[in-house]
Design a protein around this nucleic acid. Structure first.
Lengths: 218, 218
DNA sequence: TCGCCGGATTTGTGATCACGCTCGATCATG
DNA sequence: CATGATCGAGCGTGATCACAAATCCGGCGA
């Protein structure tokens, strides 16, 4: 009953469950999966060419982070958030993200702002093309690029957890009401950064974060 | 090679990995484990009378929540936080907990306040006895009892994640400088609740949360 | 006395399997 | 035609094992 279990010994740093975890996490955060999308361990294992064990670890971890929900019977799917939950998550974003922006402000030099403007251009482009997934991705990239300068890894991780929980919902939201107007407050954020205007930055971020999620009709 | 694998079919709601997870989580949050305390999967499995699989799932989940850290080689231990990280986590508490208190304030009736005062008495008692673990536990209970009224499960979960990350450090902190003075700002929190004074409540919570962690000598 | 090396032990990782439960399609019944 | 029961396929859970790498600890040499 002896079977060759590991044909390839893996280059260490990339363990199987980490690869699976990272891929799934990105898919969820960027809204590539619709809310309520069901996943199975065997399906994930087949898709990634691994056994059920790494698939389970990845899923378990994503459930712990709120990226996936698990029913009492162990079935797993992307979360379908109600209005209250969406508002609550938006409140948390509105509390944490201005703080991250404020911490990043003194460290935001021109190269960073240039990069943010480039990302914002791609974001606007995605809006005009009606590409919801790219929209969500570049939107988050815009924010993360700024927040990385805050040198506050725990706070950033916390915010990313929120993004993760909102991922499928964001796709559904921006995919539903397909607006052709580019993200309105990103330019205000950039302007406040250039001016070194901290209260203005906080307000711009808060508004940007809040208003996008106010469109909760359910 | 057939073995009876599950002698008891379990009453469903309590799966093995859930039981292990919850026990370990409580131990970490309440500071029952010192910072840097090492854990092994086989040790956990032996201790709980389960196989390695549920032990791994629990540990994986706790690592995802920041309750444990995992080295590159997969070794697991409770986190040893540096000063910057402690300050950062304290900042997050200072942002989120006043908001939770504020949301709970209109729903805080007298029975709740009575319960908080009882918990606070037990907390004071733990201080006088020099019982660090009970101190941490009742301290968190005091806060959680209030925050549960906020009806904001996501925000509460986020705060508990921070508590989890601070658990071992808190024990080490309060165990080191063993002060005989009871928690100073808890009474201010209770007073603000009774008076319906929202700004006072926010300030009291913020101060309570911040000052306890200012004692970071490391 | 201190530093280094090598084998033995312990560790995490991942694959596989048995088991019991869940869920959905199908069919019989009203 | 709608409704409910039934049965099978598929699911998650947990146990066990093989394997490679990390760790520990002894002894040897400087």
């Amino acid at each position: 009953m002896q079977i060759v279990q590991r044909p390839t010994p893996e280059p260490s740093t990339l363990s199987a469950h980490d690869r699976v975890y990272r891929t799934l996490r990105t898919q969820v955060m960027h809204g590539e999966l619709a809310p309520g999308h069901a996943l199975t361990l065997r399906g994930i294992a087949r898709e990634f060419g691994v056994s059920m064990t790494p698939a389970r670890e990845s899923v378990q971890r994503l459930v712990a982070e709120g990226a996936l929900t698990m029913s009492a019977s162990g079935r797993v799917q992307t979360p379908e958030l109600g209005n209250e939950r969406i508002e609550e998550l938006a409140s948390i974003r509105a509390l944490l993200e201005p703080e991250l922006g404020s911490r990043a402000l003194p460290r935001a030099h021109s190269a960073l702002i240039d990069r943010m403007e480039a990302i914002n251009a791609a974001n606007t482009d995605a809006v005009l093309r009606g590409d919801a997934v790219t929209y969500v991705r570049t939107n988050l990239e815009f924010h993360r690029t700024l927040y990385l300068r805050a040198q506050s890894p725990a706070m950033l991780a916390m915010v990313e957890t929120i993004w993760l929980q909102l991922g499928p919902t964001m796709r559904a939201l921006y995919g539903r009401l397909r607006r052709n107007t580019p993200p309105p407050h990103h330019r205000m954020i950039v302007a406040a950064l250039k001016a070194g205007d901290e209260p203005g930055l906080r307000l711009a971020i808060r508004t940007d974060v809040t208003q996008g999620l106010r469109h909760l009709t359910q």
